[in-house]
Write a protein that binds this DNA or RNA. Structure first.
Lengths: 236, 236
DNA sequence: ACCACAAGTTTACGTCGTACGTTTACGAAG
DNA sequence: CTTCGTAAACGTACGACGTAAACTTGTGGT
């Protein structure tokens, strides 16, 4: 069969790094990180796997490009607020983005080098501290304590642990039995927090824990900053 | 060639789950997480890959078994101390273990379910809070803020970022150039913390940041606990 | 009309996890 | 001593993966 004009013209939506990245992100969004393989991404674009290598150096580069694209989704920093609400806003904005791409945290953690979009975002966060009167030293520590929280996520060690249906008596019993050797965890698991459950629907627990931790850390940092400036000679 | 007595008797150090796990851990300790493949572990034991399946269900099970073995290395909890030093001690003991197995954090983060050793360790940590007068609710939050810190590690977003040789002028210049578009990060990077460098050798920075964060969080939690008990009616 | 070049394809290699069938070694029963 | 059941290790095989290298094809410049 000869190549027909139809085939020739309709197949021409030329590949591009952008298109490759977006296809991969789409795949990951629905299928998780394991859904990304060169062959699958190619398939998604109606193209053989090897063609992708015209636009990404290798799979690592693909992954890095993906998180870069995500980070660039974070809305730009709007100055003028006091440091604490600025930082809080920035973290929550980032969180919003990362919630749309649940695979991203796990991928970020495997990157080894900083990329310009990452650096740009971090620079804006560091800037908030400095602007807020924090010393360089304390700012440095602050970035470390915040860790991934500055990017809006925390890696939950075990996702399923504290999710259970309180109305399913069978499940409750099973859980109680399973946790019997661990009395403290059992006690904690049994005391659902009905106060907060009321104001946040199910599945929003993550958000609550996130801001709880974020505020705890920000308050602690604020106190350290104030202590630092009040006795300006004592170091360490 | 007939099977000779030599071959028969000398080849008999029978496999076992323990031996498989230890071999895999050994491999991971020196070669990182990518060094673990069924074939390589088999090779390490002088055995074909498939033989391992007599002792582990699959690779996931192998990985889970490996982190279980690590967690069981954490020394048991010794009661009798006040909650804060108890918790601090527990986290640092865990940290000690995980520093001997740098691959472990990354593997833990990919586990989906709790295992008995994990639960046992967590139970001991939860117990410290409860014993220390924390409410169930606050204990629950506390476990979330601590996150992986309760296990003695934090996932550094980018390992290399703030490591550079201050005496290598060439490297310094290059870094300055690279960070030029990010003035805040540059400023932070340039202000090495000579106070602390003095009392902790190079490479110990991680430890310093870890305890800084840990203490910040513990202090914050303590304040919340005291506020909770002082006005015992106000919730939320 | 030609040709260089970019973009996509094809083929191929080595590695991975693991399903499945076979062989071997050993302890107990005859 | 033979026989045989059983568990453990072996060997082969399959499909999926990342990617190197060679090949084809459609397009724009001369």
């Amino acid at each position: 069969m000869a190549t027909q004009p139809d085939t020739r013209t309709e197949a021409r939506t030329p590949l591009s790094r952008e298109r490759v990245l977006q296809a991969a992100i789409g795949l990951a969004d629905e299928g998780g990180v394991d859904a990304i393989s060169m062959r699958k991404v190619g398939q998604e674009l109606g193209v053989e796997a090897m063609s992708l290598y015209n636009h990404v150096a290798n799979k690592e580069d693909l992954l890095t490009g993906m998180v870069d694209a995500i980070v660039e989704e974070i809305p730009p920093f709007t100055p003028g607020l006091d440091w604490k609400t600025a930082l809080r806003g920035r973290a929550l904005a980032a969180r919003d983005v990362f919630k749309r791409h649940e695979w991203a945290p796990r991928v970020i953690e495997t990157r080894t080098d900083m990329t310009p979009p990452m650096l740009a975002y971090m620079d804006s966060v560091v800037g908030i501290f400095i602007q807020g009167g924090f010393s360089m030293d304390l700012t440095h520590h602050a970035m470390h304590v915040l860790g991934s929280r500055a990017f809006g996520f925390t890696q939950e060690l075990f996702k399923e642990t504290d999710e259970f249906d309180e109305n399913d008596e069978m499940a409750m019993l099973l859980m109680q039995q399973m946790l019997e050797p661990y009395p403290n965890i059992l006690a904690m698991a049994m005391s659902a927090d009905h106060e907060h459950e009321r104001m946040l629907g199910p599945g929003c627990d993550d958000d609550l824990e996130f801001v709880f931790g974020l505020d705890l850390i920000l308050d602690g940092l604020e106190r350290l900053r104030d202590r630092e400036t009040e006795g300006a000679d004592a170091a360490g």
